[in-house]
Amino acid sequence: MIPTKGLIEIDHFGLEYISDGGATQAVADVSLSVRPGEFVSILGPSGCGKSTLLNAVAGFLKPTQGRVRVDGEEIRAPGADRGMVFQQYSLFPWKTVRQNVEFGLKMKGIGADQRERMARTLLALAGLIGFEDHYPDRLSGGMKQRVGIVRALATGPKVLLLDEPFGALDAQTRVIMQQILTNIWQRLRISVLFVTHDIDEAIFLSDRVYVMTARPGRVKAEVAIPLPRPRDPESMIGAEFLALRRELAGLIREESLHAMGGELAGGMSGIDVMLGDGSLVEML
């Protein structure tokens, strides 16, 4: 089945905010798209405005330039047709796992019995059966984010937006979470826009990766990830993977150095030549 819904179009998007020091351009002239059922990541150094883009798709903020559309409709407000997973834990502490997952359905006015049935399928998909009646306080970080993903999916959104959802997790849990997310995505065939600063994560998960520049954020490059699926952690040491990693690392490094300041960048690029490419990727 080829998905037909969930086309995200970001068109000449810009965001400017006013502070004490005057106007600051956070994001400038970004155009990107996510096709229905596609997994797309936005990769960039911190402060490049990747989260800003995601928040605009979620409807939390309005662009000062350009347009954001999902399935041709301009985004005006937050809504359950776009599932959002936040960087920090955002489960309602006063609701059990089940109540958290059912929240969006409850807001839609769906009855308790049907809510429970709908939630159960997703809870199973995320390996959360047996924890339905736990409060978030008693869950590990990985489980909290799994509940967060399931909660965002419960209302059957057209797109799923994730803002560095695994940033706070340890390396092992992170890899497991990436597999679970891939698994869920392949089952549901939903469009995903995923924000991260982790190169390996972006490659492992995505069909395509947009690399952003340092502030003001712009699209620096668009890189297709043609690795076959299903992918597993072993595929992350193959030659194809490493080539992609090197390419993305190169693009990101320029931006990180740029963000840190010109003088440092000059010094570092001198070392680049001496070390060659392979070991430098490791440095990053």
């Binding site: 937050p78 599932g83 959002m84 936040f86 309602f92 929240f103 969006g104 807001m107 965002a152 209302t155």
Partner: peptide
């Protein structure tokens, strides 16, 4: 973030 989460889940 809890308010944002509720809002994005369709809460009035």
């Amino acid at each position: 973030v809890l308010v944002l989460a509720a809002r994005s889940l369709g809460a009035s």
